[in-house]
Design a protein around this nucleic acid. Structure first.
Lengths: 227, 227
DNA sequence: CCAAAAGTGTTGGTTTTACACCCATGG
DNA sequence: CCATGGGTGTAAAACCAACACTTTTGG
């Protein structure tokens, strides 16, 4: 703490790992960079934090530029502060896991910005340390989907049990047993059965459910990784 | 990302939540501040990050000023970045959970700096948002002690099963069943029985153990919260 | 011989896994 | 009437929680 007047200044940015389920696949929102460094590479959406702006505010500001948002769930992943992570100079980035409920098409500006959904698995070369950040985000999501009702943040407000199970399978990368899944998810008591069915395709209609409580909450009995 | 040249500058600090078990009690290392802001209040050890210094390097530098260290285990808790958390102006702090194995007395300089061990429970008024940071650190430690072999980082290299159990009880704030604890910890296969006993006091000597692997590792079967 | 902490197994209850068939619909 | 995905229960195995007495030592 030698010289408190001068020390410790550096640039601070935020980055968001936005997950969404599109076409039966878990996707991450990435942006094609159109200037150096890493020109032409894919990167996470993000940017520098403004004066008097909260970190979460900065993430939301950056994301509203790229999506039509109803509501964004944010969970901090941590600070990525390696000295040489940005060739322009020292930049510390605070990364967030972000979830936006679906039916949120990308805003029309998004295309101009080069924003696109990419499969969360096949991540080739990304700019900066963003590959690492996405891996960390995926692990966090895997944890949360078992320990909390974070699925609320991803699914549409009405959904079938098969859709819910599908989400778990995508995130956990594991096939789950239908009967065991249904039993346990019902035991948690967080779902409400609607008086509606989803009729689609040449088969029996599916019962629709919704979450009783749409706020984020930890579950006392976590959902075990089945089968 | 309007003006990349100017935006995003702020001061960045690191803070460490150092836990240790002393006199059968879980303690946190705190420093009495001798200048404003929060003069006279207790605060976490920490300070500003220097140019070209890694975040973990900064934490270690700050801690070596206050303790005689053999080795420090660090785990990042996250970034604390509220605009108004520091009355001097904007300071983002990256907080770390830090563990130092015991027999590490505070260095002689420590006293001059006002460093002291305080019980991790009774935390009165602390400077900044440090109370919150300590709560987060305790939760992280509770998680890790069940999911990893992080106990390595706290115990002396030889220890008895009672000492190990005692550590778990302190961290989890819960009495554990002796027989169940021993069965499960042995099942994990991470301990090695030594050809030594600890003779102390008027009772049967206790078998000494050590960790087979002194590196930090996740456990596949996590230790359940017993009893 | 007393006090103190170390050490050690069994049982009943609960939880978890594995598994296969009928149902409702559209084409 | 066929194909498709929706919906349902049970039995065997694994796991967990609760519990009390004997051992070794020093004083």
């Amino acid at each position: 703490m030698a010289n408190e007047k001068a020390e410790g200044y550096m640039r601070v940015a935020v980055d968001a790992v936005v997950f969404s389920v599109i076409h039966e696949d878990l996707k991450v929102l990435l942006i094609r960079r159109n200037k150096p460094p890493f020109k032409g590479k894919l990167a996470l959406p993000g940017g520098f934090v403004e004066e008097n702006e909260e970190l979460e505010g900065a993430v939301k500001r950056e994301l509203t530029e790229e999506t039509n948002i109803s509501r964004i769930y944010l969970h901090q992943l941590g600070a990525y502060g390696e000295v040489k992570r940005d060739p322009r100079g020292r930049v510390l980035s605070v990364a967030y896991l972000a979830l936006i409920s679906p039916g949120q098409e990308l805003a029309s500006t998004a295309d101009a910005l080069g924003a696109e959904w990419h499969s969360a698995d096949d991540l080739r070369e990304l700019a900066f340390d963003h590959k690492r950040i996405i891996e960390d985000a995926l692990n966090e999501l895997r944890f949360e989907i078992q320990a909390t009702n974070v699925a609320v943040q991803i699914l549409p407000s009405k959904f079938t049990l098969s859709e819910l199970q599908h989400l778990y399978e995508l995130v956990l990368k594991k096939d789950l047993d239908k009967r065991n899944f249904r039993r346990r998810i019902k035991e948690l008591g967080i779902l409400k059965k609607l008086n509606e069915a989803k009729m689609e395709g040449a088969h029996r209609p599916a019962q629709l459910y919704t979450f009783k409580d749409k706020d984020y909450q930890p579950l006392k009995d976590r959902i075990q990784v089945f089968t």
